[in-house]
Simulated assay, not measured.
Amino acid sequence: MYLAAIGGCFTFVVILVGVWTRLVDAGLGCPDWPGCYGALVVPDAQRAAGFAPDLPLDPFKAWMEMFHRYIASGLGLVALTLAWMAWKNRHIQDYPVAVSWVLLGIICLQGAFGAWTVTLQLWPQVVTLHLLGGFTVLACFFWLYFRLKACRQSDRRPIRLPGLWWLVGFLLVAQVALGGWTSSNYAGIACTGFPTCNNEWWPDYIDFDEGFHLTQEVGPNYLYGQLHAGARTAIHYTHRLGALALGLGLILLTLHYKHHTGARRWLLAALGTYLLQVSLGIILVLNALPLSVALLHTAGAALLMLLLLRSGWSLGRLESASPAFSYRKVVHA
Rank of each mutant, 00 (worst) to 15 (best):
W84P: 08
G272C: 14
V17E: 03
L40D: 10
H228I: 08
V19F: 06
P96S: 08
F170R: 12
G50E: 06
R156Q: 08
S154M: 11
F60H: 15
V24Q: 00
L178N: 00
Y205G: 13
L268Q: 14
E319Q: 10
V102F: 05
G179P: 04
R317E: 02
L148N: 04
T128H: 06
L307I: 06
K88L: 11
C9A: 14
G316A: 06
R317C: 05
R90T: 09
R147P: 07
T81F: 12
S320E: 07
W266H: 15
L164Q: 12
P195G: 04
E200K: 13
L250C: 05
T196D: 11
L244K: 12
G18E: 02
F141H: 15
C197S: 03
V278K: 09
A269F: 11
W123H: 15
L296S: 12
G35N: 05
L308M: 05
V293Q: 00
L268F: 14
G76N: 01
W101D: 06
W266Y: 15
L244A: 14
V19T: 09
P59Q: 03
Y274P: 02
T11R: 08
G179V: 03
V99T: 14
A4N: 03
L120P: 06
A4D: 04
W84K: 09
T182R: 02
G114L: 03
I283V: 09
G163R: 08
Q121F: 09
L268K: 14
L28R: 01
A324E: 14
L252I: 15
R90W: 05
T182K: 02
T298Q: 03
T11N: 10
Y237E: 07
W201A: 06
L307V: 13
I92A: 12
N198G: 00
V293C: 02
L40S: 09
C108P: 06
F212S: 00
I92R: 15
N89K: 10
T196F: 09
G7T: 01
A324Y: 13
G225C: 01
V42T: 10
V19D: 04
L246H: 09
D44N: 04
L286N: 03
H91M: 14
L171I: 07
F51L: 05
L28M: 05
V278L: 15
L132I: 02
K329W: 12
Q121W: 04
M1G: 13
V13C: 08
V176H: 01
A26I: 02
V176E: 01
A229M: 14
C36F: 11
A263N: 02
D25P: 07
A263I: 00
A270G: 04
D25K: 12
A150M: 07
A301Q: 04
I92M: 11
I6C: 04
